[in-house]
Amino acid sequence: MKHFAGIDVGSLTAKAVVIDENNRILGSHIMPVGQDSLAAGMNAYAQALVKAGLKKEDVAAVVSTGYSRKRFTEATMQKTEISCHARGVSVVFPKVATLIDVGGQDSKAMKIGKDGKVLDFAMNDKCAAGTGRFVDVMAHALNLTLGGLSDAALSFKEELTLSSTCTVFGESEVISLLSQGQSVPDISWAIIKSIADRLVSLVKRVGIEQDIAMSGGMAKNRALVSRLEDRIGFDIHVPGEPQIMGAFGAAVIAKGE
């Protein structure tokens, strides 16, 4: 049996996945990128191999993706995370027609055709609003973990609105809301609403279909997914481990090559 691997080094985390010929995930690993993206990617790959009980020599082809994809000279091929997330998610949900990938620095919306082929896509511009970074900064300001912010948001009582979409101004607004005595759940929900609104306008640019899915680390934020479902009006499919979908798709692409 042949094996394939995908390495996805994004702006925040490095992900690696090892699969077999049937797209079965044998091992995967997620770790922070830190200072050295190449080292982080190689480490994540090494860990995924250990979990799969394999060695580098057992892997027939590797595709690298993500922000630092070009640094992996060992990879058979480099592909953008847009193609990889689309391919990965389409293996899990073959009917997927619209996909949202929200990571630490970028958010992307894709229109997907047969076999996970990307027909159109839209990306956020340079700023961090509408990305994981925005939530990370806000969670820090509220002294919450990422999961904690999501849980808090889901137990909100009163509708608040953040007036600034900018991360820097948003942070000071959150701090001033706290000092005004607003509750942490209400502020958390306001943060989630702000990022969800940005994402909805991004997905609208490629068109929203009923078979919609979400990947990337931010798909683990249950409050965000729930808010997006309300705004969009459809259930959003979230894979079991959404954060590794880029690396998984890269491995599937490696198999095809």
Partner: peptide
């Protein structure tokens, strides 16, 4: 960022 966008465009 633009490189990713253009490369993704090339891929489609």
């Amino acid at each position: 960022g633009i490189k990713t966008r253009l490369q993704a465009f090339k891929e489609i």
